[in-house]
């Protein structure tokens, strides 16, 4: 059977990685251990990041919040900092799996899996999150939308570890909305999801808005044209109709056992309709 290493520091991680460059990294195991067939498990080796101190916890600076990649989804949800600054992220994470899955799954894991259905991704796109990558060669930072290149594909290089997610504190959103469509109300893989953040005036006029969709394209779907459609308008029927058209035109969903392409396209558009009249009086 394969070996499993559970290092407690990044130095140890890099030492192990230079010895065994082919090692599979995982943190909570809610993806890697589920996907690993028993015989794949016999090949290994595995490197479990759940105890790496540098990858854990949520720390704020004057301008940014840094979430360690091995911070569990439950820990992110429970964080008062996150609840205060990024309620959209918190809301989305509450829709992942069920408590035990959130107790095991980590934010870094959700990003590295890079599933089109990853529930953390649409809010992270909206919040302009950046990922911090480290290797023996050094560290680099890049926006999450550059990091994720396709379904299950990222810019992560051999010997490199995703260490943290960094989000700017100043987002300027006073209105947020998240909705996930799944086949049931828990333990569901997203069939389509919408994350929406906006700065609105008292009368509901949008100053700026950002929209991101999960599960309706190879990666999270965003559109500047769509975001611009909202600016200067209230969330009225005419604006939303325009938004729906842009969304249905822009998404590129697939059909699978959970839903058809047609349904995903239809429902992606429908999800913004729910916003009608929202954002007023805040």
């Amino acid at each position: 059977m394969a070996d499993v290493h559970v290092p407690s520091s990044l130095d140890e991680v890099f030492r192990l990685l230079s010895d065994e460059p082919s090692a599979t990294l995982f943190a909570g195991g809610t993806d890697v251990m589920v996907r690993s067939s028993p015989d794949m498990r016999e090949r290994g080796p595995f490197l479990c990041l759940e105890r790496v101190e540098e990858l854990r916890g949520i720390h704020g600076s004057a301008t940014e919040v840094r979430i360690g990649a091995a911070t569990t989804l439950s820990e992110v949800i429970a964080s008062p900092v996150i609840a205060d600054l990024f309620p959209l992220l918190r809301e989305a994470l509450r829709h992942v799996g069920a408590p035990a899955v959130r107790n095991m799954g980590t934010l870094g894991g959700n990003i590295c899996t890079a599933s089109p259905a990853g529930d953390s991704l649409p809010p992270l796109y909206i919040l302009g999150a950046e990922v911090e990558l480290r290797s023996l060669k050094g560290r680099r930072r890049m926006p999450i939308d550059a990091f994720i290149t396709g379904p299950g594909r990222t810019q992560l290089e051999e010997g490199e570890v995703l260490c943290a997610v960094v989000i700017g504190k100043e987002q300027g959103f006073n209105f947020h909305h998240f909705e996930k469509v799944g086949q049931r109300k828990a333990m569901a893989i997203s069939v389509a999801s919408l994350a929406f953040g906006a700065e609105t005036r008292r009368d509901g006029t949008i100053v700026k808005a950002r929209c991101a969709f999960g599960s309706v394209a190879p990666t999270v779907f965003t559109s500047r044209l769509l975001n611009d459609t909202f600016a200067g308008n209230t969330l009225n029927t005419a604006v939303l109709d325009r938004a729906v058209a842009i969304i249905r035109e822009g998404v590129s969903p697939i059909s699978d056992i959970r839903a058809s392409m047609e349904y995903r396209r239809q429902v992606a558009g429908n999800l913004v309709m729910r916003l009608e009249g929202a954002g007023k009086d805040r």
């Binding site: 049931r184 109300k185 828990a186 056992i257």
Partner: peptide, 27 residues
């Protein structure tokens, strides 16, 4: 509402509890 053991040409398309959906406590 949700349970449908799908077969296609004799293949089992919903062969596990991630794809064959049964109610949870919230449903």
């Amino acid at each position: 509402l949700m349970e449908d053991y799908v077969m296609k040409d004799g293949r089992h398309e919903t062969g596990d509890l991630a794809t064959y959906i049964i109610p949870t406590s919230l449903d």
